[in-house]
């Protein structure tokens, strides 16, 4: 703290310190594959958010009564879902792979932790699919 104060006092006789401003050229993320994949990984949030908002709307539509309710069937919706699924799977892959970096358990190799995450994903997916399909008619 004292050293800092001294530096500040010394600054009064010098021009103010230059502030470092990192310059990111437009389209920097298109220059390297890793940058591109990083941006895609962060972007996955947007399509998933849109799809979940659609799901909320689908739930809300149930209040229209049996005559006002019709299930989504348009090709546009299916294409939208296919695009969302690709991004969602990329989020799953990148996020569950990270578990090996975040979670540390003594004596358990990180590869096993990642594997357990993917196993949990498969089990959860099977249960959800069973409910969504099993309670249908």
């Amino acid at each position: 703290m004292k050293a800092l104060g001294g530096a500040e006092a010394a600054d009064s006789t010098h021009p103010p310190p230059r502030v470092y401003k990192p310059e990111m050229p437009r389209g920097w993320w298109l220059r390297q594959r890793h940058y591109f994949l990083y941006i895609i990984r962060e972007f996955t949030a947007l399509p998933m958010a849109l799809w979940l908002l659609w799901l909320l709307y689908e739930i809300q539509r149930a209040s229209n009564g049996p005559k006002g309710y019709y299930p989504p069937s348009s090709p546009a919706f299916i294409v939208f879902s296919i695009i969302v699924l690709a991004f969602a799977l990329y989020h799953t892959y990148t996020f569950l792979s990270l578990a090996g970096v975040i979670i540390h358990i003594k004596g358990v190799p990180s590869r096993l932790i990642v594997l357990s995450q993917f196993a949990a994903w498969l089990v959860a997916s099977a249960v959800i699919a069973a409910v969504l399909i099993g309670f249908a008619r």
């Binding site: 989504p72 299916i78 296919i82």
Partner: peptide, 29 residues
């Protein structure tokens, strides 16, 4: 998002609308 979202999108967004499987949200009741 990682564990739950993809299967919902696959079943409710693709397989159901395509008529490949029966899904709960296809009928009001």
């Amino acid at each position: 998002a990682a564990i739950l979202v993809p299967i919902h999108v696959l079943v409710q967004g693709i397989l159901g609308p395509l008529g490949i499987v029966r899904v709960v949200d296809r009928h009001y009741d």
